[in-house]
């Protein structure tokens, strides 16, 4: 876990995140959950038949969707939410535009790297702690952790960077709910709920590990993003 760097500072809750107020941004922000859930549902049959290969082949697609979401819709770390720009104002020289692109691509690349190298192992351990098979199904669990990481962390890394205070807020549910955080929380809750049908004696093929959890977290991410972005925006979970 991230170690706190600033001792004895009370974690003051931050503010809900604002999306980039551009046309493509608003469009893609709404398209993204549909893309994610749609991709999964389209490959549901092969997911049930062969979870390992399906999850493996899906991973790059999901990563690209998430990367595009970060680039198009989100302010990168350090940026304060860009004030809404008027349509006419956005005329800049190609040179600075290219700089802008690089200023976004590099954080996205870093976010995805952190997702793969930091979040995935941590989530893998977490899944094992929750009772995922310890001696078998290693690839299944690892790919599940990868997908959970892809749904929960790239946008958080992109927005909050490696700021310890922000991550303490994220871990302790102190952050106000917005569509980025809502999607991550939704994916976690969905994965949690997805484990429930596994023990039922219905003898269905889709009850096998980790199909229900995958479906649960994609569904949860979808719902979480909508709920966090619209319904409960700015709401804070009070743990104590």
């Amino acid at each position: 876990m991230t170690t706190p760097t600033k001792p004895d500072t009370a974690l003051k809750p931050g503010k809900p995140l604002d999306l980039l107020q551009t046309q493509p941004s608003l469009f893609f922000a709404n398209l993204q959950p549909i893309l994610l859930l749609g991709t999964l549902l389209l490959s549901f049959r092969s997911l049930v038949a062969d979870p390992v290969n399906t999850l493996l082949f899906l991973a790059p697609t999901i990563a690209i969707v998430q990367a595009l979401y970060c680039i198009i819709c989100l302010p990168s770390t350090g940026d304060t939410a860009t004030p809404a720009t008027k349509p006419g104002q956005k005329k800049k020289t190609p040179r600075t535009q290219r700089q802008d692109i690089w200023a976004k691509v590099i954080p996205v690349f870093l976010s995805l790297t952190l997702t793969a190298l930091l979040s995935t192992p941590l989530l893998y351990i977490l899944l094992i702690l929750f009772g995922a098979p310890l001696t078998t199904h290693h690839l299944h669990t690892l790919l599940l952790a990868l997908h959970l990481a892809l749904l929960t962390t790239p946008h958080l890394f992109y927005v909050h960077g490696l700021d310890a205070t922000a991550w303490l807020r994220i871990a302790s549910l102190h952050l106000p709910v917005d569509e980025v955080y809502g999607m991550s929380l939704g994916a976690c809750v969905g994965a949690w709920l997805g484990a429930i049908p596994i023990p039922l004696d219905w003898d269905r093929e889709w009850q096998k590990w980790p199909v229900t959890v995958v479906v649960g977290m994609y569904g949860g991410a979808f719902v979480g993003k909508l709920v966090g972005g619209y319904l409960f925006r700015g709401w804070r979970i009070k743990l104590s």
Partner: peptide
Amino acid sequence: VLMLGSSLGQASR
């Protein structure tokens, strides 16, 4: 896990 999260949000180090 929730207690771990909540602990990380405590004011005092």
